[in-house]
Amino acid sequence: MADIEVKMGDLKITRNPGNLVAPGIGSCLAITLYDPRLKVGALAHSMLARHRPGSDNHSAKYVDTAIDEMLKRMKILGGRKEDIECKLIGGANMFTNIKSDIGKENVISAKKKLKENGIKLVGESVGGSVGKSVEFSVVTGIVTVKIKF
């Protein structure tokens, strides 16, 4: 089955056997949620930590609302919070000469939201200053992180 690409500011959920992929992650955060019982996977490619009053309604763009949206959709497919496992990838600072907390804030926001919902964080590859690509197998739940060097 062809890979499903999740572009910046977007999220996808599927139970079809195959991969969800997010190429070229920098300060953005790739959030994978997997239900091994149902073999349902969701991947968000979020840009900013928090949705604020006045922000647009594009839920996948913000880490907190992206997690809410993915959990909502997994529930519709029969998912239970106690079964769901999360992995986080990205949250880097690509231009190390300038101080930027965008990536760091994305990671903090995700961990807070996961804790609130009682979702297990089972793996992470976050921070640093290297771009990453994510390949998430919905068959096995395995997340492969690739770098270019």
Binding site: I25, G26, M94, S100
Partner: peptide, 21 residues
């Protein structure tokens, strides 16, 4: 100027994110 050598998506997304709102 600040230099970075990496994946295009990772570099450009950081700048877009600074301006996205």
């Amino acid at each position: 100027p600040i230099f970075s050598f990496d994946m295009f998506g990772a570099i450009v997304s950081e700048i877009i994110t600074k301006f996205v709102q």
